[in-house]
């Protein structure tokens, strides 16, 4: 199970973040300050750290820098201020993303998952098919100057198909890889996703096309 370390001097925030992440299926560790956090990191295997910016003893930027220096795990900063210079400081300290308080629980989970996925497959971040660029780091499809953001699941289906163009993926393989083995949705979910991907791509490009292979599954065709 993925373990997440939450560091904040405010117990309410730590609990709120903890509950939200546990509900989403993560294991959580809690720390009140930077020193406790570094101690915990030494003892346990942790996959991601959520760090509050304003903390006594050691502020969030310093802690982020220390974590990044020693461990290869992503860090998300929690900040009350949305100012630009804060963000710059955060990114230069090595944070992967930041969340502005107050935040929606759903936003938190989305960001955690996105950052984790980015770390999951460090190779081939970018798939380039002629003028179409599929960037898995920020979940963007780029065609020329046009950028396209789509729902995560649709993007994942597209990225998977694009990883081996012209190869047929069967439906079960797609569902297993995107939704997991314990997927309980019905067969039509994949159809709906494929239909939407087609609609969305069709509007901006004709270079790539998702083609149905009757009785088997789908493939991504590249036309030049």
């Amino acid at each position: 199970m993925t373990s997440i370390l939450i560091i904040d001097d405010d117990t309410h925030i730590v609990n709120l973040v903890g509950v939200t992440l546990r509900d989403a299926g993560f294991h959580t560790y809690k720390a009140k300050n930077g020193l406790d956090a570094l101690e915990l990191l030494e003892k346990s295997t942790i996959d991601l750290a959520i760090v509050d910016v304003m903390m006594p003893k050691m502020d969030g930027y310093t802690l982020t820098k220390k974590i990044r220096d020693t461990y290869d795990i992503p860090v998300i900063l929690l900040t009350a201020k949305g100012e630009l210079y804060d963000k710059e400081q955060g990114y230069s300290a090595g944070t992967d993303d930041y969340i502005v308080k107050p935040f929606e629980p759903k936003e938190l989970v989305f960001r955690v998952q996105a950052v984790l996925r980015r770390y999951d497959k460090p190779s081939n971040h970018v798939i380039q098919l002629h003028d179409v660029k599929i960037d898995k780091r920020n979940y963007e499809v780029q065609i020329g100057k046009q950028h396209l953001l789509m729902p995560m699941k649709e993007f994942e289906v597209l990225a998977l198909l694009a990883s081996r163009p012209n190869q047929v993926f069967n439906r079960d393989y797609l569902i297993e890889n995107i939704w997991g083995l314990d997927f309980e949705g019905d067969e039509r979910t994949l159809n709906v996703h494929i239909k939407r991907i087609r609609e969305r791509l069709g509007k901006i490009t004709s270079t790539i096309e998702v083609v149905t292979v009757r009785g088997v599954g789908y493939k991504l065709e590249v036309t030049s």
């Binding site: 936003e107 989305f110 960001r111 979940y139 953001l149 789509m150 649709e154 939407r196 901006i204």
Partner: peptide, 12 residues
């Protein structure tokens, strides 16, 4: 992006 995702939208 999370809200776009949440509402099943696409954004260009």
């Amino acid at each position: 992006h999370w809200l776009v995702n949440e509402n099943n939208l696409s954004l260009t």
